[in-house]
């Protein structure tokens, strides 16, 4: 085991991927708790598809991917949030519309310029080789921003997640914090997308939150458990992909899935136990 880890850390690109990944996994899990509870999971998915489209455009124009993606995905986050909040349009349908359109635009742009090559496949399903030093700096900076804002606004995020109407009625500026959550999510998705893959990044947001909710009954515990679980699953997934020479993004998702099954079982047993001791759930 120790040998394996030493071998793992002897590769510079893996160390880079590990650092980026740990930060991305941590932040995605924190934001994920609110997104899942607010029924905004689809926003994460939609944003990652938009991210793919913007990467394709950046690649075909020969521009730096992050510089093109970050502003465009932030813009998309703003739009998606407005759509979800508006009662006139059916939110989930509109998000599906935007995400498949973005994907189609990406595929068209690529096939008209560079053609569907290995790079495209990497964007779709992720590659740890994609992590350069520049990504490392950007991702660490983004993660620090997310962490600081999350801790500072933790109580407000709880208030608007639990009951946005009450928060609004009692003078919390819910719209502002919703926007903050959406922007931070967009940032993390763009940073993590090339390693995890546009098709798989949303799992980092959704899985840890869903798993933790099975087992814990307080918001703080759910948040902490999600963060720890997410980092742990990322690390295990990375090691698994290294050992079995499997795609990294997919391995991480599978590890998360296994964790979810385990937590679902724990939750089931816990509820049964409650039922047996109190006669109520």
């Amino acid at each position: 085991m120790f040998e394996l880890l030493r071998e793992l850390f002897s590769f510079d690109f893996i160390v880079r991927a590990l650092i980026v990944g740990v930060f991305v996994a941590l932040c995605a899990a924190l934001l994920g708790v609110s997104l899942v509870l607010k029924r905004y999971s689809m926003i994460g998915d939609g944003l990652s598809h938009v991210g793919f489209g913007t990467l394709a455009i950046a690649m075909s124009l020969g521009l730096a991917p992050l510089q093109v993606s970050i502003p465009l995905v932030l813009l998309a986050a703003f739009l998606l949030l407005r759509i979800s909040e508006s009662s006139k349009i059916k939110g989930d349908a509109a998000i599906a519309l935007i995400s498949s359109s973005a994907l189609a635009i990406g595929v068209l742009v690529i096939s008209l310029t560079t053609g569907l090559n290995a790079d495209v496949c990497n964007y779709m399903f992720g590659s740890i080789l994609a992590m350069k030093m520049g990504d490392l700096y950007v991702s660490v900076a983004a993660a620090v921003v997310v962490l600081v804002l999350y801790i500072l606004f933790y109580n407000k995020i709880f208030a608007i997640t639990f009951d946005e109407q009450f928060a609004r009625a009692t003078g919390v500026r819910a719209g502002l914090y919703n926007m903050l959550i959406a922007f931070l999510t967009a940032l993390i998705i763009v940073v993590g997308m090339r390693m995890m893959g546009a098709m798989l990044i949303s799992s980092l947001i959704i899985f840890p939150a869903l798993s933790s909710m099975r087992a814990f009954g307080s918001f703080k515990r759910v948040v902490i458990c999600s963060a720890v679980l997410s980092v742990l699953c990322f690390f295990v997934g990375l090691v698994v992909s290294f050992v079995f020479d499997a795609p990294t993004g997919a391995s991480i998702v599978i590890v998360n899935l296994a964790a979810f099954c385990l937590f679902a079982l724990v939750g089931f047993v816990r509820r049964r136990f409650l039922l047996a001791t109190h006669g109520e759930v």
């Binding site: 509870l37 109580n155 407000k156 709880f158 639990f162 009450f166 928060a167 919390v172």
Partner: peptide, 20 residues
């Protein structure tokens, strides 16, 4: 959304103070 929300009672009641 609330009926199945993972939060303990103290967290919920405290959130009433957030507006101030």
């Amino acid at each position: 959304v609330q009926k199945d929300f993972p939060a303990n009672v103290t967290e919920v009641v405290l959130s009433g103070r957030m507006g101030r």
